[in-house]
Every structure is written in structure tokens, then in C-alpha cells.
Design a binder for these strands. Sequence first.
DNA 1: AGAAATATGTGACATTTATCACAAAATAAG
DNA 2: CTTATTTTGTGATAAATGTCACATATTTCT
Lengths: 225, 225
Amino acid sequence: MQNECADCVCVLRSSVNMKDCQLEMLGGNHAVVKFKKGDSIIKQGVFSTNVIFLRKGMAKIHISGPSREQIVKLVKAPTYLGLPTTFGDKINQYSVTSVIDSEVCFIDLEVFKKLLGENKDFGSYILMELCKSEMEAYRRCASRTQKQMRGNLADVLLEFSEKLFEEDEFTLPLSQSDIGNWVDAGRESINRTLSEFIQDGIIQMQGRQIKIIDKKMLKMISQNG
Amino acid sequence: MQNECADCVCVLRSSVNMKDCQLEMLGGNHAVVKFKKGDSIIKQGVFSTNVIFLRKGMAKIHISGPSREQIVKLVKAPTYLGLPTTFGDKINQYSVTSVIDSEVCFIDLEVFKKLLGENKDFGSYILMELCKSEMEAYRRCASRTQKQMRGNLADVLLEFSEKLFEEDEFTLPLSQSDIGNWVDAGRESINRTLSEFIQDGIIQMQGRQIKIIDKKMLKMISQNG
DNA sequence: AGAAATATGTGACATTTATCACAAAATAAG
DNA sequence: CTTATTTTGTGATAAATGTCACATATTTCT
């Protein structure tokens, strides 16, 4: 377990200057846990006593809306998970579920807070992260509501290929209903639109394996869709 | 100007312990400015060099989406304005416009950052604020997309009466098109739905003066609409 | 391997809400 | 005070997507 921590800390070190004693403090107060695809990492409504760092894998963040569960974001390692819900409230305000096999590091909340106070760099790094994700949330929301199906689905495919997998060929980590849920569309509509994209020669698809053929067209659709 | 600052600081003091020297530092590095209804306080795309505190009034936060400007939030004094956009980037990522006559305090960004580093309480207070607003953004977005017109409009009216004005009778600070923009609906739909609410005896309305008659019904509509 | 549960493909149809088109009011501007 | 400009009210129509209903794969579980 001790060696796994070194990697974990490594990520922190890369973005922030941290003293050795602070690293030790972190190292001594954490636990690494593996989650399989579909496992719940954070559950809305239960107590949170740990800061959670996603070391490997990918996870969806979802929140219970008025009529159904809504996916708000998809994140990949390495990243902190649920900072806003951990700090903002004792009780988790949203859920996080792994979408592929993942590895997570639990860090004691008090230790983390202490670190935040002691290390200015670290504090402003975390502050920055929060700012960015809030801005991101606003942008996303505006984009989602102003575009329609084709545009939103194009966005999702582009996000997979450019942000999450960084390849033009990848395996969808979400079901079509999840994608629908994410972009506020019915599962059937997603299916039909995917078929359209295949028909138009924009993507190829077998099972959940997707290959983007015409990225320019996808970007066009993303913009004026 | 110096006396106006005392009030401003007062708000900070109420939530955070702050040393006198820190208060002085703040006091010496700020400027109070008045904005009239409709004036732009923060403009997306321009440099930001100040932390902005809304002392009096109310403002809308809006961001340019793919096809139009989108209102994402309405805030009332006292509150910081645009923290995420000020910290996250040198360039403002969204705009803020006053919707009623307002008073704003500009605080030098470097001074504010210094304070953040020196005063742990203040730092964690700001951190907390950011967490809350991020959570709020997620909730809002899920709610907006899952409800339809009636539900969203009911939410808006309830927010006005319970959060922003804290009265059952108030003057709408936004035009019907702005409200539509805010809840992702056309101006005409808002108008028609308002008429329905009046017809059903849920609200009374003359000009922009609104009086909520049947709050229970409004809450019902908010839930299952 | 076989059964049960999920996930996908596809048609027909209903519904909500956007859009267009004007008229009337209300506000702001000169 | 008169003229512009912005808001508001209301009908008719169209377009996008949700919903329902099955058939067929595909995955998961025992």
C-alpha cells in the first residue's frame, strides 16, 4: 500500500510544491481502494469523511434531480473527486460511480484541511480547480440547453475523443441511455442520431467501439447544431 | 469613501475573524462604485484585476453560449461577484450586469490573494462559498432540464419570493424574455404560462408587480412540473 | 451453458414548446 | 411632448423530441 501512495502523491507534487513532512502526513493518512466498473464511489446522502482522489480510471458524477438521476459530468484520472461535495457539506450532495475499473485514494478530510491551511500553493491550487469546474459547469449547461440533439451528441463524441481518451477510436464507457441522460435526451433519440452519424460517414461503430472518421464534420455539427 | 468601506468590511467580519491590520489592508485598497439598472459590472472577455463585492442591489450572471447569451444565475447583495471567473483566469469567463441600481466594491486582486494566504478562516470561507455555488449550479442545471415550463417558472417565482426578495410581493427585476432566457424557454411561453398562473389564481400581477397568492400550489407545480 | 437481466434498433404517434406574425402597451430618448 | 425602442399579449403553425410498443442483441449471473 505504501508504494501505491508514492504515485498518488506524485500527482500532487507535480502541480504544487510540498514539503516532505507534508507528504509524509498525507502518506500516513490514506487508503487505496479498487472499484470495478459500475461500483459506487460516492453516494449522495451519506456522510463524507474523506477527500477522494481518482488515481486510475474514469467516473461519472450524477445528482438526483426532481424526476430522475442526472449525469452532470464525466471525469478521468488523475483528479480529485467530489471536492465541492466534501467541503461544502458533511453529507454528500451528489454521487460518483466508476464507469470503468478504477483505483481511488481516500485521504482523511482533517489531514487534507490541515494541509490546505499550511501550504499556500496547495490551497490556491485547489481553489483554482474549484473555480475552473464551476466555470465549466456554467458553460456546459448553457451549451446543452442551447444546442439540440445532434450538436450535443457531437459534443459528447468529441469530448470522449479529445478530452477523455485522447484517441479517435475508443470504447464508449456509457450506455446509450446514460448518454441520453447526460445530454438530456431520450435513449431512442441518441440511438437514432448515432445511426444518422454512421449513415453520414461521420463515425464507424461496432458494439460500443467507436471510430471517428470525419472530425471536421463533427465539429461543424457541434457548432451549429 | 472610507466610511462606505467599513460597511463592506462589516460583512466580511461577520463570517470570518480578521485582524485589524488585515482590515486596514483591505480598506486601503478598494473603490466603491455605483451602477444603475442595466449597467455592466463584469464583461466577459476583458481582463479582470479586481475582486468584486456586491454591497447593495442585485445582478444577473450571464455567459455567451453557442447561439445566444444565457443567464445562469441571479444574485443579490451582499455577495462576492465573479470569484470563479476572477481566480480561474485572467480574462473574465462570464458577464455580470446589474438588474436594479447597485453598489459595488472593487478590491485589488493581489491584496485579496494575500489575505487569502494569511487568514486561514477567510480562505476556507471562500473555498466553502465556491463549493456551494458549484453544487448549486449542478442542482439548478438538473432541475431546469428535467422540469418543464410551468415547473421552471414556478421555481423562478419561488426563488424571487423566498431567496431574493424574501417577500410574497415584489417587482420582477427581469423582463419576460430574460426570464425565458434564464429557464430555457421562449418569451412567449413565459407570457402564456404567467397568464395561466393568474387565471388559476396562483398569482396576481400588474405590470411587473407580482403578488403570490397560492404559494402551496406554486410549490406543487415546482415539484411535479 | 442456459437463464435472466440489460442494452440496442426502429416504427408510429403524441406533446411540448419554439417560431412567426402582428397589435397594443409601456419606457426610454430626443 | 412626441417619436423611437423595448416590452408584452395572443393566435396559428411547425419542428423536435419524448413516449409507447416490440423485436433483437448482448451481457451478466448462477
